[in-house]
Nucleic acid binder design. Structure first.
Lengths: 148, 148
DNA sequence: CCAATATAGTTGGGAATACGAACCAGTTAA
DNA sequence: TTAACTGGTTCGTATTCCCAACTATATTGG
């Protein structure tokens, strides 16, 4: 059993792996920043995400769960706590009265906006080494990655 | 604010924001993948990270905590459980006998390797839209971002 | 039209994560 | 050699997340 690292694939190999490595590194850094900003406002990363999703949506609980990749039972408590803090609210859906819509309150919208502003400021330095054309390039490259 | 004559200086706004947005999107996707791979092996994202860090290091507990941005008290239990599963081990540092070094067992190394292999395969599709030169470019751009 | 079935959300139990405070045990400084 | 400091663990608490069980509403088939 030798180390299976020795494969020398012509064009696919090293460049791709390194790009992925870099991507993972950056991903963790981004999470760190978002996590910290959340913590400063007594919000978990997941709650931060919830607020982010609600910025431009009014999903029902199940849709929210799907977005987050979580079980719907995990969402209830999450919503409870955020609702208790007045950041979001529930409302019974009128068409399907089993369903519950979730949406930001004005206070929640305000806080979300403020946090995402902070996030932008704090993430900015990560791109310090890039000039405008490089940023544009990065955006285009990453844009391709998220097209699903 | 829009002097259409010279597009040199004030291109800070939209391009940067969009690049950051894309970055955050991708970061969440990456986390999702890693998280799932961890879960398939009954490991939390944090534990996955611990194993990843131990691949090429033999830190003491405090160093590990610093790497993860966690309190050292959070690390003990984490190590306990992974140690109980035989994935890593502790050893009293001989120079400073208060300190405890943490390192992978062969089994832990094996599992880590296998998971990171899977991760590479699963993250690969994210770069599907990019050809080799673009990947190289991405790597270089992101590389700059992680230079701290 | 109504019983069987499916779906939406909540609740409760249990394991894991993370923090801070309190606590030993070793180390360094006064 | 005390006194102060540092490295790790333990304890108590809050949160997150899953699964299973449950209630309420919707849908379907006979």
């Amino acid at each position: 059993m030798s180390s299976p690292i020795d494969d020398e694939v012509p064009t696919e190999g090293a460049s791709t792996d390194d790009a992925l490595d870099a991507l993972v590194q950056v991903a963790f850094q981004v999470m760190g920043v978002l996590s910290r900003i959340g913590a400063e406002n007594e919000l978990s990363l997941t709650q931060l995400r919830v607020l982010g999703i609600l910025r431009d949506r009014r999903p029902r609980v199940t849709e929210l769960a799907a977005h987050l990749g979580l079980d719907k039972s995990s969402i209830s408590g999450l919503i409870d706590r955020a609702e208790r803090r007045g950041l979001l609210a529930r409302e019974r859906n009128t068409e399907d009265r089993r369903a519950v819509d979730v949406f930001l309150t004005p206070a929640g919208r305000e806080l979300t906006h403020q946090m995402y502003d902070t996030a932008r400021r704090e993430l900015m330095p990560m791109l310090d080494g890039l000039d405008a054309p490089q940023r544009e390039q990065l955006r285009r490259l990453l844009w391709l990655s998220t097209r699903d």
